[in-house]
């Protein structure tokens, strides 16, 4: 009986007293907020980078032959993209986050915005590779059909290729969202009260680690499991639509 009583006491201490449970859900809110906006930024960056890189790969020869400014611009852009991909994927996200917070954006005191930017920029590198694979997997005949109707390269991308790519990579993108959700757990390093930090703050206040940390883990797990289920459903629906 004593064991259960002490469990109950622990629970009351860690979650009920001073309304501590609220901070966990506020933390979850921040976690979801950062993830959502970071993914949106990541998708925007990812599409742009993927289009630049595939454009360069597909058209380098013809651009080179025509020579001139266009080729040089594309070459510089492509090099910049590669540099970005190398740096972002070659360094830990928590280090990137800290550099953003403590070095670059020292004049911004809204940690949430910095975290969104940092995770967005980080995610962009991974999303770019997802989209690049997606663009490369579209049959070249689609490009040719678009071009033969009179669309220029970017119109063909926009109206014909990208919509198909988005449909094809949607499940992978959702999985990227799930990965990112877990990665944002380092946001506490720059003083953001995300879910992980909220649990840790409770631990610091109550000097009891078990309950708050297990609660944090269970909340992440629940969200991830639900999202994974939804992605599976989406995947099945997309496959059914293909007939």
């Amino acid at each position: 009986m004593g064991f259960f009583n002490s469990l109950k006491d622990e629970f009351v201490l860690n979650f009920i007293e001073k309304g501590r449970w609220k901070s966990l859900f506020k933390g979850l809110g921040n976690t979801l907020l950062i993830t959502l906006f970071a993914v949106i930024i990541g998708i925007a960056i990812g599409i742009i980078i993927a289009v630049i890189r595939t454009t360069y790969d597909k058209n380098a020869e013809t651009l080179k032959k025509n020579g001139g400014v266009k080729y040089r611009i594309m070459k510089v852009l492509n090099t910049l993209c590669n540099l970005y991909l190398t740096v972002v994927r070659g360094t830990p996200v928590v280090v990137q986050l800290m550099i953003f917070y403590f070095v670059i954006f020292t004049f911004v005191d809204n940690g949430l915005i910095i975290a969104i930017l940092a995770f967005g920029l980080n995610s962009g590198a991974y999303v770019a590779e997802i989209f690049r694979g997606g663009i490369m997997s579209i049959d070249n005949g689609q490009f040719e059909a678009g071009r033969s109707l009179g669309f220029n390269y970017f119109q063909t991308m926009r109206y014909i290729v990208i919509p198909q790519v988005i449909k094809n990579v949607l499940p992978t993108l959702c999985n990227e969202f799930i990965v990112l959700l877990k990665e944002t757990s380092v946001a506490g390093y720059v003083g953001i009260a995300d879910l992980t930090k909220a649990g840790d703050l409770i631990r610091g206040a109550t000097f009891s680690a078990f309950m708050p940390l297990i609660a944090v883990a269970l909340i992440y797990l629940t969200v991830v499991v639900i999202l994974t289920k939804l992605v599976k459903k989406l995947e099945m629906r997309l496959r059914r639509d293909e007939r």
């Binding site: 049959d139 005949g141 689609q142 040719e144 059909a145 198909q164």
Partner: peptide
């Protein structure tokens, strides 16, 4: 206009 062997409809 161009018509391809493999249709290339969208």
């Amino acid at each position: 206009g161009m018509v391809f062997q493999h249709f290339n409809l969208f």
